[in-house]
Structures are given as C-alpha cells and as structure tokens.
Simulated assay, not measured.
Amino acid sequence: MQTMDNLRSPNERTYGLEHVAVGVDVRVSTLSLVGDECVPWHWHTRTSDIFFCLEGTAVVETHNPGNARLVNVGERYDVPPGVPHRVTPLGGKRCRFVLVQGVGKADFHPGRP
C-alpha cells in the first residue's frame, strides 16, 4: 500500500467535487482524485459518508479502528458518524466516486478528534 506521508498540505489540496443533489438531510456528490490529491482527515457529527467507486481505486483510511479500505469499481464503503477518515487515490492513479452524505445535516470537522 502507498505511503500517505507525501501528500500536499490541506491548504494546497484540490480535488474535483461536483454536487449532484443537495437536500436538507442528504447530499450526493461526485469526486475525482489523482496524484497527491486527497480529501483530508475529517469527521462528521451526525452523517455517514457512503462511497461508491466509479473509476480506479479509492483508499478510505479510518482512524478508529485504524485501518485502510480499498474501494474498487462497483464497490461501496460506509464510514459512520464520528469516525475520522480521509480518502486518497491508490498509487496516485485517478479515482472517481459518488459520495452520499446523510441522513442528517452535513458538517465537516477537520482533523482527528
């Protein structure tokens, strides 16, 4: 598995994000990551992040219980509320996925509590 220590600092990170649907208690987006781009460590108070991989392989790391999950094309992976996580492309190769956030008001807390 790739090392995650060579990623850009949070203020330099960019990634392709497009909201597909935004409601009061659910948000659906598509994201694309390539190279050293990543969704930095964060967590949500009440909502889950549900990942559906469309292209490549996404690496979803969770701080609690401290693991990494490879999410390949056609696969789904859920991160429950309160669990710190980040997302990177495997080996820097492009990955694209649908992200469903809900049910509840989405928030974003940077870092790991």
Rank of each mutant, 00 (worst) to 15 (best):
L99P: 04
N72D: 15
R13Y: 01
V103C: 05
A106F: 01
D5C: 04
D36E: 15
I50R: 08
F51K: 08
D36I: 00
W41P: 00
N67R: 14
G56D: 04
A68L: 08
V87A: 05
V100I: 12
P10L: 04
V20F: 05
G66N: 14
R112T: 08
R8M: 12
V98I: 10
G35F: 06
R69F: 09
G102P: 08
A68N: 14
W43S: 03
P113D: 04
T47D: 12
Q2M: 12
P110W: 05
M4W: 10
R8I: 01
E61W: 08
N67F: 04
T47R: 02
R13N: 13
D36L: 07
L7M: 13
L54Y: 00
L31P: 00
I50A: 04
L54P: 03
V20R: 14
P81S: 09
P81K: 13
L99S: 11
D107A: 03
V26T: 12
A68S: 14
P80V: 06
R86S: 02
V22Q: 10
H63L: 02
D5N: 13
G104P: 15
G91C: 08
P80I: 01
G91R: 10
E75Y: 03
C38H: 01
D25N: 13
H85S: 06
P113V: 01
P65K: 05
G111T: 05
P80F: 02
V87Q: 04
W43M: 02
N6T: 10
L17M: 11
T88N: 06
P110Y: 03
E18I: 00
V24S: 15
M4V: 09
